[in-house]
Design a protein around this nucleic acid. Structure first.
Lengths: 244, 244
DNA sequence: CTAACATTTTTCCAACTGGTCAAAATTCTG
DNA sequence: CAGAATTTTGACCAGTTGGAAAAATGTTAG
């Protein structure tokens, strides 16, 4: 039922800090984080919780979200939820580290051996599809950014930066080969992020402005068409009159 | 000292709802909302509060922000703050309605009688300057959007929509005259919003990715140059080899 | 100076917050 | 089915939250 699957047995990329609760759970009398393998119920409930947490965190941010609220959306009691995730931060961390992977996948796919325009074009497509299909993930990310990314700044500075550096080099190579306008590859990537994620993060505004007629599902196709033209030719009118 | 001036005697655009506290203040024994004209201290303190609230709301969103926190930033006690704004919502509302005006000013300035490229170019400049000079306002707005704009949806659906409709028509006229590539004027406006506001809303990410060398104040000039090229020609390489 | 007003502080409150704990209920395993 | 392990519940807690009330202090016009 939940449209987004969050990896449940995911291994944290950052070395798991020894919270008081973690310690208790690891050595202690109850709690699912024991050395023993996860049960079916554990996996299921954790998924339900993460799905509910995504819903709540993505709307209200970390501080604005409450455990009670998450528990209610998840359809369980607060202590029950806390049995699976001993602290609020833990839920958020799990959500974030699972997210960053998914989030950067489209960029990773850019192939240095491909041709620039098809590659960039399909990158935009993929990002736009993510904005359409995973808007909550986009908002979760945006929320974290607005707050100064306190809980993922390291990931941003290392993993994300490295990936962008790598892809910026690819773009530069294409520019050197004269296959792409010589411009700033970093700001190029930013502009793709911005224009595509806008449709998830500012969805309310987009819908309100487009109105009921054009604000339906078709808006993503319209956006794709527009962005394609923008990144290809900009706004300069071309004299190609009426060719399909 | 505060870099942003929020209009202090601003008249609420939405009909002021009769909160319990409003009623009390209007008829009652104390509170600044009396019929009598505002004193100097009232104006000053309200500005200090709004400035502090901007700081806090823009980072944590409405629910994540606390009155205590705002009061601390404003350098006063919580009850003292509540003397000027009887409820948290009131502060936020004042902030938001002042914001929307400022926020849409650059779009308003687009002149139908001007030439499309200079007009669009300076619109992008203005928006980028706002992202640089008023990043907190941008984040406040973004935060509200992420939450589904519950407190300003009407303004979005009326004021903002009307303005965008009007300017979209201007763009369409330019397209009809062959001065601008025929494309979707709404998504065109969205893309300018997205690309410019990105530098305020995702500032942490932008800095982290650009690194200390390129993440300094120069990044806005770089962004301006890049965006100019993007909106003018897109990414298609032009054979103009090495001219200024 | 003083009365009338404006402002600030102190004290307080009920609801909510993240989180604990032991006991009860359930599920799993031999 | 019995016993062990897991899961769920209910009662509870200390700290924080938005806000109220009133007393105490400033300020200012006459």
């Amino acid at each position: 039922m939940p449209p987004i699957k969050v990896k449940s047995a995911e291994v944290a990329t950052t070395p798991r800090r020894q919270h008081k609760a973690d310690a208790r759970a690891a050595a202690g009398s109850h709690g699912p984080a024991k050395p023993r393998a996860q049960t079916r119920i554990q996996r299921e409930k954790q998924d339900v919780i993460l799905e509910a947490a995504l819903e709540v965190f993505s709307m209200h941010g970390f501080r604005g979200a409450t455990i009670d609220q998450i528990a209610e959306v998840a359809g369980m009691s607060k202590p029950n939820l806390l049995y699976y995730f001993p602290r609020k931060e833990e839920i958020h961390r799990r959500l974030m580290s699972a997210l960053l992977d998914t989030w950067l996948a489209p960029l990773r796919e850019i192939n240095a051996d491909g041709d620039p325009f098809p590659e960039i074009r399909s990158y935009i497509r993929r990002k736009l599809e993510m904005a359409r299909d995973y808007p909550r993930e986009s908002r979760l990310f945006a929320n974290e950014m607005l707050q100064g990314a306190p809980r993922i700044i390291e990931m941003i500075e290392v993993d994300l930066k490295n990936l962008v550096d790598e892809k910026a080099k690819v773009l530069l190579t294409w520019m050197d080969q004269g296959k792409l306008a010589r411009t700033d590859p970093y700001h190029l990537i930013f502009s793709i992020w911005a224009t595509t994620q806008h449709y998830a993060d500012f969805d309310v505004q987009v819908r309100a402005v487009l109105g009921p007629a054009r604000g339906g599902e078709g808006r993503f196709e319209d956006a794709a068409r527009y962005l394609e033209g923008l990144f290809l030719h900009g706004l300069t009118p071309r004299s190609t009159p009426k060719a399909g």
